[in-house]
């Protein structure tokens, strides 16, 4: 098995699976009908991307695990998503700000990976890039509307930025075991994306009259399987049906 490639695919897939599941928690609860449908669609795109990435991870591993086995039968310590993705969905402001912060990262990451020398990764990335672009557009518009909106929406959007910012640094910490994949052009160095991410994010925050905190300690651990307590609770809900009835078909 190509272990670094398997791990790299888990990082890509788990980010989308966990964020997709968190977003799906809004289904039936969003503030307006259009937003309920939008968040359900965004969740679906993320889970679809995870489906492709984890499916490929299973093939690379060669141990007979498919995407469902990887999604439903791994424990929190085996998940490789960034901590940002697993935090509770919070209020609508937290959900939107998180999708915006992660979405801009995703667009840059897919853009780089669409040039991957691995044709499967390049194909998935080119497809996901189109989807992430309209997610970012949707959430970016909301960030401005909330930040530059009423006193209440501004306060909540600013609180969301303050809460989430310490979790953004992990996105750009390049895992050491990916060095050979990066030099072979299979993977993309995430640390090289930070400058472009900051420029895009600052531009929207400025238009939204929001400010990013400075000099905060950046949390990390998700990429190594050290998660917040929130992931275990989320997985318990996400995995219970598959684990209670293993192999069930309908």
């Amino acid at each position: 098995m190509n272990t670094p490639l398997f791990e790299a695919l888990l990082r890509l897939g788990d980010d989308r699976l966990v964020l997709g599941h968190r977003t799906s928690e809004w289904c039936g609860h969003a503030p307006i009908l259009e937003e309920d449908i939008a968040l359900a669609n965004i969740a679906l795109d993320h889970i679809g991307q995870a489906n492709l990435l984890l499916g490929y991870a299973g093939t690379v591993e060669g141990a007979g695990r498919d995407q469902d086995a990887l999604a439903y039968f791994r424990d929190a310590v085996e998940y490789r998503n960034a901590l940002l993705c697993e935090l509770p969905k919070g209020d609508f402001g937290v959900t939107i700000v998180r999708h915006f912060l992660h979405g801009v990262f995703s667009v840059l990451q897919w853009e780089a990976l669409s040039q991957s020398t691995d044709p499967t990764i390049a194909g998935i990335a080119a497809k996901a890039l189109k989807e992430s672009k309209y997610h970012v557009r949707h959430c970016g518009e909301w960030v401005i509307r909330l930040g530059d909106g009423t006193d209440e929406s501004h306060a909540r959007a600013q609180a969301a930025v303050d809460q989430l910012w310490p979790y953004t640094g992990e996105l750009f910490m390049q895992p050491a075991d990916e060095a050979s994949l990066v030099s072979a052009g299979v993977s993309a160095d995430v640390s090289a994306l930070e400058g472009a991410w900051r420029a895009q994010v600052s531009d929207v925050l400025r238009r939204a009259t929001l400010t990013a905190p400075e000099g905060v300690w950046m949390q990390r651990g998700g990429r190594e399987g050290r998660h917040t307590e929130h992931l275990g609770h989320m997985l318990a809900e996400m995995q219970i049906v598959a684990r209670s009835h293993p192999g069930a078909q309908w």
């Binding site: 259009e34 449908i37 939008a38 801009v104 672009k133 557009r137 970016g140 401005i144 895009q200």
Partner: peptide, 30 residues
């Protein structure tokens, strides 16, 4: 552009009356 707010939309023609005086309600449909 990554965050093309106020995106310019090409005119979409109403399939019922064929008018192009139409407006986007939401990018996420059924």
């Amino acid at each position: 552009s990554l965050v093309p707010l106020r995106r310019a939309h090409a005119a979409v023609r109403c399939p019922w009356c064929k008018s192009t005086r139409t407006s986007l309600q939401t990018e996420f449909g059924s």
